[in-house]
Measured scan of single mutants.
Amino acid sequence: MATVKFKYKGEEKEVDISKIKKVWRVGKMISFTYDEGGGKTGRGAVSEKDAPKELLQMLEKQ
């Protein structure tokens, strides 16, 4: 499965596409929420050019 690499609050993070719950576009950025486990929801964003094609496909399906 594909992963998304991004920075959040200065920390490098990587999340599996299957854990992503919601995806939306903000200008040229793709924002998303994902399941961190333990009932927590994380947030992240990547630029449109750095987003994996699976993430862009999720955006188109909504």
Rank of each mutant, 00 (worst) to 15 (best):
A2K: 05
A2G: 11
A2D: 06
A2S: 06
T3Q: 03
T3M: 03
T3R: 06
K5F: 02
F6A: 03
F6M: 02
F6C: 03
K7H: 10
Y8A: 03
K9L: 15
K9W: 07
G10N: 05
G10V: 01
E11A: 09
E11F: 05
E12Q: 06
K13F: 08
K13R: 10
E14M: 05
E14G: 01
E14I: 06
V15T: 07
V15Q: 01
V15W: 00
D16K: 05
I17D: 01
I17T: 06
S18C: 15
S18Q: 08
K19E: 10
K19H: 15
K19T: 09
K19D: 12
K21H: 13
K21C: 15
K21S: 12
K21T: 13
K22I: 14
V23G: 04
V23C: 11
V23N: 02
W24M: 10
R25H: 10
G27S: 13
G27K: 14
K28S: 09
M29E: 14
M29L: 09
M29R: 07
I30G: 00
I30Y: 08
S31D: 10
F32Q: 00
F32H: 00
T33S: 07
T33E: 13
T33L: 07
Y34T: 01
Y34G: 00
Y34M: 01
Y34R: 00
Y34N: 01
D35A: 06
D35G: 05
D35S: 09
G37W: 08
G38V: 13
G38Q: 14
G38R: 06
G39N: 11
G39T: 09
G39A: 11
K40F: 12
K40M: 12
K40W: 08
K40Y: 06
T41S: 12
G42C: 07
R43V: 08
G44C: 02
A45I: 11
A45E: 15
A45V: 06
A45Y: 10
V46W: 01
V46D: 00
S47T: 05
S47A: 10
S47N: 11
K49G: 09
K49V: 15
D50L: 14
A51E: 02
P52E: 03
P52C: 06
K53V: 10
E54A: 07
E54R: 03
E54S: 04
L55I: 11
L56H: 12
M58S: 04
M58C: 14
L59T: 12
L59D: 06
E60L: 07
E60S: 12
E60A: 14
E60F: 07
K61Y: 06
Q62F: 03
Q62S: 13
Q62L: 13
